[in-house]
Simulated scan of single mutants.
Amino acid sequence: MVIPVIAYYAVMSVLAYVTYAVDKKAAIHRRRRVRERTLHLLGVLGGWPGALLAQQQLRHKTRKTAFLVGFWLSVVLNLACVWWLIFQLGII
């Protein structure tokens, strides 16, 4: 049961990383951006490790305090859901 969870987090992390990269490129070229709520949703759904890596490697979304608060709240929410699945439902 652990392998599918790891695979899920890997897929979501790649998706989040790519989405951050697309948003960074859009910001550079002054094009339409990815909504912040979309980035946060990816974090809640398990993509936060990839999002964190993208923030550091791409130097994207690292200065806006309101965004960072939302990002870390999405991490906490995701981890709380995983904890609940593990300990309350016996899943994973």
Rank of each mutant, 00 (worst) to 15 (best):
29 H>T: 11
45 L>Q: 08
54 A>T: 14
53 L>Q: 06
47 G>R: 04
57 Q>G: 02
32 R>P: 00
46 G>N: 10
33 R>M: 07
52 L>S: 13
46 G>M: 09
55 Q>H: 13
37 R>Q: 14
39 L>W: 00
57 Q>M: 14
34 V>M: 09
33 R>N: 05
49 P>F: 06
41 L>Y: 03
52 L>V: 05
50 G>C: 10
30 R>M: 04
51 A>R: 03
35 R>F: 02
37 R>P: 00
53 L>A: 15
47 G>T: 06
51 A>V: 06
48 W>Y: 14
40 H>G: 00
54 A>E: 11
54 A>P: 14
39 L>G: 03
56 Q>P: 00
45 L>K: 06
51 A>L: 10
51 A>H: 06
45 L>T: 12
33 R>C: 06
53 L>P: 05
43 G>D: 13
56 Q>I: 12
55 Q>V: 12
40 H>L: 15
50 G>I: 11
45 L>S: 11
56 Q>N: 13
42 L>M: 13
46 G>S: 11
49 P>Q: 10
42 L>C: 03
40 H>P: 00
58 L>K: 09
29 H>Y: 11
39 L>N: 03
38 T>H: 09
28 I>N: 01
48 W>S: 05
30 R>V: 00
36 E>W: 06
30 R>K: 14
39 L>R: 01
53 L>N: 05
39 L>T: 06
52 L>Y: 15
43 G>W: 07
37 R>H: 11
45 L>M: 15
32 R>T: 09
30 R>L: 06
55 Q>C: 13
48 W>F: 15
52 L>N: 04
58 L>I: 11
56 Q>F: 09
44 V>I: 15
45 L>F: 12
45 L>E: 09
50 G>Q: 12
40 H>F: 09
31 R>V: 00
38 T>F: 01
54 A>W: 05
34 V>N: 03
55 Q>L: 13
29 H>G: 04
56 Q>E: 13
33 R>T: 06
41 L>F: 11
42 L>S: 01
49 P>T: 10
53 L>R: 09
57 Q>T: 15
44 V>S: 03
50 G>H: 09
46 G>K: 09
29 H>F: 10
39 L>E: 02
29 H>P: 00
37 R>T: 14
51 A>S: 15
36 E>A: 06
51 A>P: 10
31 R>H: 12
44 V>D: 02
28 I>T: 10
39 L>I: 06
42 L>G: 02
44 V>H: 02
31 R>Y: 03
28 I>M: 11
54 A>D: 12
28 I>L: 13
44 V>E: 02
50 G>D: 12
37 R>A: 08
30 R>F: 00
36 E>T: 09
29 H>V: 01
41 L>N: 05
56 Q>A: 14
32 R>E: 04
30 R>N: 13
57 Q>V: 14
43 G>I: 08
51 A>F: 04
42 L>A: 03
47 G>E: 07
31 R>I: 00
32 R>Y: 07
30 R>I: 00
52 L>D: 05
55 Q>Y: 12
43 G>A: 09
38 T>Y: 01
54 A>C: 13
41 L>H: 03
39 L>Y: 02
35 R>C: 01
52 L>A: 15
51 A>D: 07
37 R>E: 13
33 R>S: 04
53 L>K: 08
30 R>D: 10
51 A>I: 05
50 G>N: 11
29 H>W: 05
45 L>A: 15
32 R>D: 01
43 G>H: 09
